Simulated assay, not measured.
Amino acid sequence: MTADARDIMVTAQEAARFRDAVQLEVRDIALAALILHFLRMPEEVEGSGAVSLSPEQLPMSDEVREIMTAGEGDLRNLDLVEMARREDSELSEYLGPVWRAIAGR
């Protein structure tokens, strides 16, 4: 196993534990690969000439645009996590511990 593959597997194990899983799943590996990709220095991922620290923003879905504009006061990380949990995506299991930590429960 290469060092990069080992890093993915170790991170995937932690991701699975984070969601209280009983086994490692493919989605844990996918999430680990994504996390490690973004943690690397930009120069390691792309040629230094092509690196942009301010990439163009993607358009926002209606749900995201609504939460960005429809609140009073500052948008909090808890607001975003709660929205993501309501959407019940495949990755929503990961958000339970995040929500509990942010909400102080």
Score class of each variant (00 low, 15 high):
Asp4Ser: 12
Asp4Ile: 13
Asp4Asn: 09
Ala5Val: 12
Asp7Gln: 13
Ile8Leu: 04
Ala12Phe: 00
Glu14His: 14
Arg19Trp: 02
Arg19Lys: 10
Ala21Arg: 11
Ala21Asn: 07
Val22Cys: 00
Gln23Thr: 11
Gln23Asp: 13
Leu24Ile: 02
Arg27His: 09
Asp28Ile: 06
Ile29Trp: 01
Ile29Arg: 00
Ala32Glu: 09
Ala32Tyr: 04
Ala32Asp: 06
Ala32Asn: 03
Ala33Val: 10
Leu34Ala: 12
Ile35Leu: 15
Ile35Gln: 04
Leu36Gly: 10
Leu36Thr: 05
Leu36Glu: 03
Leu36Phe: 06
Phe38His: 15
Phe38Gln: 15
Phe38Asp: 15
Arg40Tyr: 01
Arg40Met: 04
Met41Asp: 04
Met41Trp: 06
Pro42Ile: 13
Glu43Phe: 07
Glu43Tyr: 12
Glu44Ile: 14
Glu44Cys: 09
Glu44Ser: 12
Ser48Asn: 04
Ser48Gly: 02
Gly49Lys: 12
Gly49Arg: 15
Ala50Gly: 11
Ala50Tyr: 08
Ala50His: 09
Val51Pro: 10
Val51Phe: 10
Ser52Thr: 14
Ser52Cys: 11
Leu53His: 10
Leu53Ala: 11
Leu53Gln: 05
Pro55Val: 10
Glu56Tyr: 02
Glu56Met: 03
Gln57Leu: 11
Gln57Phe: 08
Gln57Pro: 13
Leu58Ser: 06
Pro59Thr: 12
Met60Arg: 00
Met60Thr: 07
Met60Ser: 04
Ser61Asp: 15
Ser61Ile: 03
Glu63Arg: 00
Val64Gly: 06
Arg65Pro: 02
Glu66His: 02
Glu66Asp: 06
Glu66Ala: 07
Ile67Asp: 07
Met68Cys: 08
Met68Glu: 00
Thr69Asp: 02
Thr69Lys: 07
Gly71Lys: 05
Gly71Tyr: 01
Gly71Arg: 14
Glu72Gln: 06
Gly73Tyr: 00
Asp74Thr: 12
Arg76Leu: 01
Arg76Glu: 00
Asn77Leu: 12
Leu78Tyr: 15
Leu78Gln: 13
Leu78Arg: 15
Leu78Met: 15
Asp79Met: 02
Asp79Cys: 02
Asp79Gly: 05
Leu80Phe: 09
Leu80Glu: 04
Val81Pro: 01
Val81Leu: 05
Met83Ser: 14
Arg86Lys: 00
Arg86Trp: 00
Glu87Thr: 13
Glu90Tyr: 07
Glu90Cys: 04
Leu91Asn: 08
Leu91Ile: 14
Ser92Leu: 03
Glu93Ala: 09
Glu93Cys: 06
Tyr94Ala: 09
Tyr94Cys: 07
Tyr94Gly: 07
Tyr94Trp: 03
Leu95Val: 08
Leu95Lys: 04
Leu95Thr: 08
Gly96Cys: 02
Gly96Met: 10
Pro97Arg: 09
Trp99Lys: 10
Trp99Ile: 08
Trp99Gly: 08
Trp99Thr: 08
Trp99Ser: 10
Arg100Met: 09
Ala101Gln: 03
Ala101Leu: 09
Ile102Gly: 01
Ala103Cys: 08
Gly104Gln: 06
Gly104Asn: 08
